[in-house]
Structure formats: structure tokens, C-alpha cells
Computed example of a mutant assay.
Amino acid sequence: MYSRKEIWRISLPILVSLFVQNLINITDTAFMGRVGQVELGASALAGVLYLAFYMVTFGFSTGAQILMARRNGEAQYRTLGPIMGQGILFLEIFSIILIFASLIGTPQMLKVLISSTAVCQAGEDYMQYRIFGLLFTSIGVMFRAFFVAVTRTKVLMINAVIMTVANVVFNYIFVFGHFGAPEMGIAGAALGSVLAEATAALHFFLYTFFYIDRGKYQLFRFRSGGFGLIREILNVSVWSMILYFLTIGTWFLFFVAVEHLGELPLAIIPPYERHAYDPHLF
């Protein structure tokens, strides 16, 4: 039995990390507000499209988290590493497929759905960089699932702070072209977010390498024949993956509808509505 204090000790870092991670969306909005009206609206619209892809991987990690938490509760610690390893491998392959599909299909889809040529072009510029963030968020969501499963949640808060700070720094460098970097505008915001996610994934890896008993959990030991594990994870997570994608997909359609009212209405959507789709709040 867990006391109220122990429950708060585990859950409070998760709550704080959710709040801090949401600051990434707010800082991106702040930077785009200084670039231009079109960029501000396009980043919101394209950001929701990226988020729909991301939520599929997040749904998969939810299933993996359930399995790892159950194995941890049964003291089958050596089975956690294979679940995490096969999960990362599956999500990386899946992310590569999504990236290629996005690079090929997103420009055509935006041209069909978006009425403003300027917003459409800005959205394309954003997505051609932002979509590569899936390679790093796929790693991050699996590490997050592992740490929640073993109740080592304090690292989530630290990781969220690192990612937020990195996002501000990289946005400052690439959006406005400081320290010798090119002035990239909306593409710089996308690149900054990708680099921030890469920094967060690196922190998770280094923390696990130095502070977690890798032998106990059999971490970083990829094995062949993991299709059974992937099938087991998918049996638990497939409906969550579909649900999350459809939920964010409706937000994307809402932003498309607003865009047809004009560039200004898209740009002035209240910030709380832009960030109401934070994936970590699901």
C-alpha cells in the first residue's frame, strides 16, 4: 500500500514536467509572434499536423508503459529492457516511414487544404524540418514510459526543464540568425524544436547509462526475434494510437477551417486553445 506522501512523491514530478514541457509551445508562439502574422498562424497549423503524427508514437509508448509497469510490479525486472528496446526499434522504423510519407505528401495536402499561398508555403517550410523530431521523440516517449513504470519520475521534471531551455536557446539562434547561424524564421523554430528534442533524448540516455542499473533491467541489449513483444505492445496500445491520432486530427481540421477565414484569424487564436492539445496531458 502506498501512502499519500509516496503517491505525491511519484506524481508531482510528472505534473511539473507536463507544465514545463507546455512552455515549449508557448515559447515557439512568442518567437513566431516576433517574426510575422503568417508565420505565427502557419506554425500553429503545421504544429498540430506534426502533433498528430507524434501522438501515434505516444499511444504506442502508453501500451509499452503498461506492460513494463506490470512486469516491474511482478519483480520481472529483466523483461523491462527488452520491451523498451524493441519498442524503440519499432518506433524508429515507424518514424522513418512517417517522415518519408510527410515529406512526400504534406506539401500536396497543404496545397489542397490551405487557401492562403503564404500560409501554405510557411507550413511547408516548418514541416520539412519539424517532422524529423519524430526520430528523437520516439526515443523520449519510450524512456518516459520506462521511468514512469519503475517510478523514477523525478528525471522527467529535469528532462522537461532541459528541453525547454534548449528550445529557447535554439530558437533564439536559428529564428533570428544569431552566433553566425542563418536567419531561418519559421524553419528555424522547427529546427530549434527538433534540436531541443534531440537534447532531451540525449539526457535520457546519459542519465540511464550512468544512474540506472542496466544489468537489472537488461537495458540497451537489443535482441532478434522481438516480433512477439511488439505484437504484445500493439495489442494493448493500438486503440490508444488510433484515439490520439483522431483526437489531434480534429484539431488540425479546426485550424484549417479557421485558416479559410483569413491569415489574421488563424494568427490570433488564443494561446490557451493552441496549447490545449499538449500530448502529455492525455
Rank of each mutant, 00 (worst) to 15 (best):
I83R: 12
R130S: 11
F282C: 02
M241D: 06
V38R: 05
Q128N: 10
S11R: 14
I242F: 00
A200I: 07
C120H: 08
P265T: 15
D28W: 01
T250D: 11
S193F: 04
L253N: 07
F252W: 15
I93T: 12
V165C: 02
V161H: 04
N72A: 13
G188F: 06
Y272K: 04
S138Y: 10
G59R: 10
M127S: 11
A181C: 10
H275Q: 15
A101Q: 04
P270W: 00
L266W: 14
L49D: 03
L89E: 15
Q108A: 13
V161G: 10
V169N: 02
G105L: 13
S138D: 02
A101I: 14
F143L: 04
L18K: 14
E273N: 12
I99D: 03
G140D: 06
L103W: 12
A44P: 06
I88C: 09
A46I: 10
A149W: 04
L23V: 07
P82L: 09
T29S: 12
I24C: 01
F31V: 12
F205L: 11
I114Y: 09
T153L: 05
L80Q: 08
I131P: 00
D28K: 03
S43A: 14
T153A: 07
T151S: 15
S237T: 06
L253Q: 11
A75L: 06
Y244S: 04
E259Y: 13
Y77P: 05
H275E: 14
A200T: 08
T137K: 01
G228T: 00
S61A: 15
V119C: 13
E197I: 03
M109A: 14
V236I: 13
C120S: 14
P182L: 11
E39C: 06
E263I: 09
F205R: 03
V48I: 09
M163A: 12
F282I: 09
Y211T: 02
Y129V: 08
F220G: 04
V141P: 01
T250M: 10
M55L: 05
S43Q: 10
R274F: 10
L40A: 12
F170Q: 00
G47I: 14
A200E: 05
S3V: 02
Y126K: 08
L266C: 07
S193P: 06
F204D: 00
T117D: 13
A145P: 08
A160I: 00
V48P: 05
I173G: 07
L49T: 12
N159Y: 01
